[in-house]
């Protein structure tokens, strides 16, 4: 049982990060149909910027805020300078643009920051908390709690604010949204800013556990994308569930089956799921118009 709990908490912590990355994918996808492979770089920027700002003597809370703002600015620029000018291009072209953007951002990070690994002090110490025989780092609760707070805030934002509803309307039908007077361009900017902020928060929360470097974004983008697809592209709840499931599969796979093949186990489950549910766990079947 202790073993099971240990694996579960490990999976939930890692899964919470995947979930936040997957949420970032989803928000941008819904607003603009763009699959943003630079999503992982926001996580990297959040972590690395905080590390470097604190090294410059900026107090941690301020450094965190500045890092998130920095990521938001990068997100807005990405939209304004790379996505917006290519509006109307095919979805594959847009994907290649975001891949270019992620290579660019990584290249920038290696010049602006460095190529070393870095860490942050855990927010509330590193004495493990024992739950049912499993020892869990306090920072894990920060990660999981942070993910919950973000999900709740997003839910409230989408359902109880006018702007949030406008975002939902845009993702449902862009033309109709335009016709009822929604500034869809602004909505898209908002989506990029929001995704960037979520990614950066994830980066800050997780750095004390997983460390960070200019390169961490690639793998997170890969896993986050897989998680978003498992949940059903465009479905926020699906993204969260998908992220947690992938995290748990990896942890249980490594714990009970084979650590060599734990990533494979996650992907096999994704493949099987998609064979049964071709649009993911929560996705709706899309109807092609002729």
């Amino acid at each position: 049982m202790a073993e099971f709990l240990q694996f579960a908490f490990s999976g939930l912590t890692v899964g919470a990060v995947y979930a936040l990355v997957a949420l970032g994918f989803t928000i941008i996808y819904n607003a603009s149909d763009v699959v943003n492979f630079a999503q992982g770089e926001f996580v990297m920027i959040g972590g690395m910027a905080t590390v470097f700002l604190t090294a410059l003597g900026v107090p941690i809370p301020l450094a965190v805020v500045l890092a998130i703002l920095g990521a938001v600015v990068v997100g807005l620029l990405l939209h304004r300078l790379a996505i917006e000018p290519a509006r109307g291009a095919s979805s594959v072209t847009l994907i290649i643009i975001t891949i270019g953007a992620s290579i660019f951002l990584r290249g920038l990070a290696q010049v602006v920051f460095d190529k070393q690994f870095h860490t942050l002090q855990p927010f509330s110490g590193d004495t493990p908390i024992v739950v049912g025989g499993a020892s869990i780092l306090p920072q894990s609760f920060w990660v999981m709690g942070g993910a919950v707070v973000i999900v709740v805030l997003l839910w409230a934002f989408f359902n109880h604010t006018l702007i949030g509803k406008a975002v939902l309307a845009t993702s449902a039908n862009r033309l109709a949204a335009k016709l009822v007077g929604i500034n869809t361009g602004m909505i898209m900017s908002l989506a990029f800013a929001l995704s960037a902020a979520i990614g950066a928060v994830a980066g800050v929360l997780v750095t004390p556990i997983t460390l960070t470097s200019y390169e961490v974004g690639t793998l997170l983008a890969l896993k986050g994308f897989a998680a978003a697809m498992l949940g059903g592209m465009g479905h926020p709840l699906g993204a969260v569930v998908g992220g947690l499931v992938v995290g748990l599969l990896e942890a249980f796979g490594a714990g009970y089956l084979s650590s060599d093949y734990k990533d494979a186990i996650a992907f096999v489950v994704i493949l099987i799921t998609l064979f049964v549910l071709p649009t993911g766990l929560f996705g709706r079947a899309s109807v092609e118009r002729v």
């Binding site: 240990q6 694996f7 942890a251 714990g255 734990k262």
Partner: peptide
């Protein structure tokens, strides 16, 4: 005898097995 991937960020499952 356990392993972990080059970019893995959490090795507690493998270490739990070793511990046990």
């Amino acid at each position: 005898d356990e392993t972990y991937g080059a970019k893995d960020s959490d090795m507690t499952p493998q270490l739990t097995n070793i511990k046990n």
